[in-house]
Amino acid sequence: MNKILVTGATGQLGLELKVLSKNYSQYEWVFADRTAVSLDNLSILKSQLETILPNIILNCGAYTAVDKAESEAELADLTNHLAVEVLATYAKVHGVKLIHISTDYVFDGTSSTALKEDALTNPINVYGATKRAGELAALAVNPEVLIIRTSWVYSRFGNNFVKTMQRLLHDRDTLGVVNDQIGSPTYAADLAQAMMDIVESEKWVPGIFNYSNEGEISWYDFVLSIQEITEETCEVKGIPSSSYPTPAARPAFSLLDKSKIKEIYGITVPHYKESLKNCLTAEV
């Protein structure tokens, strides 16, 4: 029986994979939190992998506190770059399949058309830079690694934009939301399914793939969609990024082109509104 190791198991994507794992009982599943697989401690990471001995690694673990990363660059780099290199090296030595999750933040946001996998990367914050370094390191030591870049991830679990906006729409009379950052959200349950579709596929095509839900929206548009479903009466106003300064700069445009993952793996990508409804009505 093949063993699947899920790192970052207590995060949004890890928890969605745990729900999904019930449909894939032909695998032995190991859901590892940061103590079981320590992406922030390279001295024990390799021995932890040697103890678990997975056949497939789904690396959902990452340092994702985008603003905090600006002042914790070393820790972000350890988790997002150096640990990924260890995972990729382990996968190479042991003939293990590795799917690694990356981000739209590897781009600088100056594009005006949906970004393909071979588009020029130019991160504008520490988080994006460490994630790009992780991509490069993984592919350098192991060209068989499969990387999925995703964006604006949310789920029924944990803290995320959708849950925060739900609360604020209910509690406030007015709400200002950034309207000049364009991309597409990703329901973690959909991404988890895409990952398993790849695992179950007859073929293994390594390299970089994009995955997010269909649609081209701003965060402001996203909140209007949340409001439409939840029927909250709060007044939502669009504001420029300059009115909501953050420690880390965000790309103004990071819409991902999903044609490659659709063509090679036959992945079905739902529209963001459909997935948002599914999330808001899902049981936790």
Rank of each mutant, 00 (worst) to 15 (best):
E232H: 09
A248V: 06
F209Y: 15
P247H: 06
D257R: 07
D257T: 08
D257S: 09
K237L: 05
I239Y: 08
T268E: 15
F222D: 08
T268S: 14
S241F: 01
D257Y: 10
W204D: 09
N210A: 10
V269Y: 11
T246D: 00
S225A: 12
R250W: 01
L256Q: 13
L256E: 13
A248G: 09
K260A: 15
E228L: 14
I217Q: 11
T233Y: 00
S218F: 14
P206A: 06
V205D: 12
I229N: 01
Y220V: 00
C234Y: 03
L255I: 11
Y211R: 09
I264L: 15
Y244H: 08
L224P: 04
Q227T: 09
I264Q: 10
I208T: 06
E232S: 05
W204Y: 06
S225F: 07
E263V: 15
P206M: 12
T268M: 14
F253S: 05
L256H: 13
I226S: 04
H271A: 15
E263Y: 12
E214A: 13
L224M: 07
F222T: 04
G215D: 14
A248L: 05
Q227M: 00
V269I: 12
E214T: 08
D257P: 04
F222I: 04
I217W: 06
I208N: 07
K260W: 05
K203G: 10
V269F: 13
R250A: 03
P270A: 15
K262W: 04
K237I: 03
I208D: 04
K262C: 09
N213M: 06
E214M: 08
P251H: 06
P206Y: 05
G215W: 13
I239V: 14
I239M: 11
Y265R: 14
L224K: 14
W204P: 08
Q227L: 02
E214N: 10
C234D: 04
T233V: 01
G207E: 02
T268G: 07
I229A: 07
I239C: 00
I239F: 07
I217K: 05
S241E: 08
L255V: 15
S243A: 11
K262I: 13
S218N: 04
E263T: 06
Y244R: 02
K203Y: 04
E216T: 14
E263G: 05
G238E: 02
L255H: 13
R250E: 00
D221Y: 01
P251M: 09
A249R: 04
P247S: 14
E231G: 03
G215I: 06
S242L: 09
S242I: 00
S242K: 01
I239W: 03
A252T: 14
